[in-house]
Amino acid sequence: MLRYTLMRLGIFLGCLVVVWGLVYSGVFPSGRNGSNALWIPLLALVISAPISFVVLRKERDRASVQVARRVERMKANMQASAGVEDLADDRARAEAQSQAS
Rank of each mutant, 00 (worst) to 15 (best):
D89T: 14
V17Y: 03
R73G: 08
R93S: 10
C15A: 06
S81C: 08
S35M: 11
V65A: 01
Q99N: 13
Q79E: 15
Q66I: 11
Q66L: 15
M1S: 04
M74S: 11
Y24C: 03
L38Y: 15
F53Y: 08
L6G: 03
W20L: 07
L42K: 00
Q99A: 13
E72M: 12
E85S: 11
L6V: 03
A76G: 04
V55F: 01
D90T: 08
L43N: 00
L45T: 00
A80M: 12
L38D: 10
R69A: 10
A80T: 14
A37R: 08
I11Q: 03
G21M: 02
G26N: 05
I51K: 01
L87H: 07
A96N: 15
V84W: 13
R32T: 03
P50A: 09
S81K: 06
W39V: 04
E85G: 11
A63M: 10
G83F: 09
M74K: 08
S101C: 12
R8Q: 05
L87Y: 08
D86G: 13
A68Y: 03
D86W: 15
R3S: 07
L16N: 03
R93W: 09
D90A: 14
L9D: 00
V84N: 12
L13C: 05
C15M: 03
S52H: 05
A96G: 14
G26Y: 08
E95W: 06
G83Q: 14
Q99M: 07
S25M: 09
V71R: 14
F53D: 05
K75G: 06
E85T: 15
L43H: 00
W20V: 05
V27R: 07
R70Y: 08
R60E: 12
F28H: 06
D86M: 14
A88Q: 07
V84S: 08
